[in-house]
Amino acid sequence: MTHPFMTQPSPSLVPHAGLRAAHVSVRYGRRAVLHDVTAGPFAPGTVCALLGPNGSGKSTLLRAIAGLVPSSAHVTLNGEDLSRMSLPDRTRRCLYLPQALPAAVQLPVLEALMAARQTVRTPLPSAPAEEDAIQAALESLSLFGIPHLAMQAMDELSGGQRQLVGLAQALSRKPKALLLDEPLSALDLHHQFAVMDILRRETAAHQLVTVLVLHDLNSALNLTDHVTVLHEGRITASGPPAAVLTPELLRETYRVRARVDTGADGRKFVSVEGIA
């Protein structure tokens, strides 16, 4: 049965390019969270939003793609079969950023980033690999405009600052696919836009596949290239944001009465009038 909102994702120009996950079924105990979901292909160089109400399986889908929950998923990234890789190899290519912020521990931000690389093996300071890790850490902190936090301890930061550190951790590993679980949840309005801007630039510059869970429909409408909607463990719609996010879909998925209007500048925006 195909859902009326289901549109075929546009086929990519390069065969096998992008991220695709086929037949993802996940159960937590007796409860099935994802029912044979096939997602993607998410094309390189695009920012894709994963939308859906609470408990629809968004986080689980991202975790399954990253290989962090046992599932029957078959996942390929740019033609490589991730399902057969070891966890370190797989996370090096395809990185999941959890929704939980990095814990407030007594660790300088610089070392939090060095640890995220997982490339320094020696317990002794001042190894060559450590110099690389410091370099990458500083680059990534600069990318997010927070090099001045490098020597501050994680437990002295605000939640928003820790979320930025978490994002810097993710990007410092230079993965080919970024799976971000509510990466804007602790950020103020300015930083939400700034981070989306950074993600869009990095995605385009390095031809990343970026999939993020969002709750703000207007951000999804205007700042992403592709939208996938999950509802009760199944994908109910997928395609360009403006085509997918219709009042009918919002009513069925979120049980709200909403309008999608077009502003004077041509931008679309969702306004919610009440619950349906």
């Binding site: 962090l68 797989r90 090096r92 990185l95 640890a115 997982q118 978490g166 951790q169």
Partner: peptide, 8 residues
């Protein structure tokens, strides 16, 4: 979860 997602 963060450690696992970073390959630990």
């Amino acid at each position: 979860e963060r450690a696992a997602s970073l390959g630990v």
